[in-house]
């Protein structure tokens, strides 16, 4: 039904509810007709709307039956009508981030490898086996350094602070610079190796991991950037409740994005609201 009867769009509404541009205005027009219409807080959920912005339904329950009901109801209510074009205009520069020119986009996935108790229901099981997805952005100068066989400090720190996280159950807290207790990650003869110790001041959250990976380059371009971090993680964040008790095994995987997927241009989670800090 979604493929044929609708035009589906996936968004991180954190951006759209803030954006001062045509995209943000159109999003707020739709979401403002739903129950979550205070744009100071989250408006997350599933919405159906006509191209002119007429509201056709909302639901924040992702159960298959509830979603089907929302879709059917929206189709019943939909009356095709002309929708005047919207002039896109310039995108709000505070929120419109694109992959760095001449840089790299790296797919990042993470998974908890064990330690969970038996799940109480199917919903909990989904979170326990979930694969976290994100992207690492590499600047042009960092890309060039990698192609020469060097890994810049800025990239090592970005990997540690923003990508060695447990976001398998929701949006994870990132690491502050001072929470990097140890970061040894060296590139020698195409081999990335090292270890990391990240821990909050109180010690309530941490990650101690070993890293191993491989970098290959041809004609000044990186053609392979594969990396794995594996170790013991402990603790959870405000939006990642339900972590396994105590220390549990977590692995994080990095691989160059193909560039063919629409998702490849989605900004890194760690840069949301802190893009300058993320990419510096």
């Amino acid at each position: 039904m979604l493929r044929t009867k609708f035009v589906p769009v996936a968004l991180d509404q954190w951006y759209q509810r803030r954006q001062k541009d045509a995209e943000g205005e159109f999003y707020r027009k739709i979401a403002g007709q739903g129950p979550r219409n205070d744009f100071k807080g989250t408006t997350q959920g599933l919405y159906a709307a006509a191209p002119d912005g007429t509201f056709l339904g909302y639901n924040n329950n992702r159960g298959p039956e509830r979603v089907r009901k929302l879709l059917r109801k929206a189709l019943d209510a939909f009356r095709p009508a002309d929708a005047p074009p919207i002039e896109a205009g310039p995108a709000d520069p505070q929120y419109a981030h694109v992959p760095p020119e001449g840089g790299l986009v790296v797919d990042v996935t993470a998974k908890v490898l064990g330690g969970y108790p038996e799940p109480k229901d199917w919903h909990e099981r989904i979170f326990q086996v979930a694969l976290q997805r994100d992207h690492l952005w590499v600047r042009k100068d960092e890309h060039e350094a990698l192609a020469r066989g060097k890994i810049p400090e800025s990239l090592r720190v970005r990997i540690a602070r923003f990508h060695l996280v447990d976001g398998t159950r929701g949006e994870p807290p990132m690491w502050k610079r001072e929470e990097i207790r140890r970061l040894d990650l060296a590139l020698a003869e195409g081999r990335l190796s090292g270890s990391v110790h990240l821990e909050t001041e109180s010690g309530d959250r941490g990650f101690e991991a070993d890293l191993l990976g491989f970098v290959e380059a041809k004609d000044g371009r990186v053609t392979r950037l594969d990396l794995v971090a594996k170790g013991l993680f402990w603790g959870e964040g405000r939006y990642t409740k339900g972590a396994p008790p105590g220390k549990f095994p977590l692995a994080v995987r990095f691989a160059l994005a193909s560039g063919k997927d629409a998702a490849d241009r989605i900004p890194p989670e760690g840069g949301r609201g802190w893009h300058a800090d993320y990419i510096r």
Binding site: L2, K5, F6, V7, P8, V9, A10, L11, D12, Q13, W14, Q16, Y27, I30, A31, T42, T43, Q44, G45, L46, Y47, A48, A49, A50, P51, L56, L71, A74, L75, F78, G167, G170, E171, Y239, E269
Partner: peptide, 9 residues
């Protein structure tokens, strides 16, 4: 019609 999957993250 449009279908929006609008999440945090």
């Amino acid at each position: 019609p449009l279908f929006l999957w609008a999440m945090d993250g």
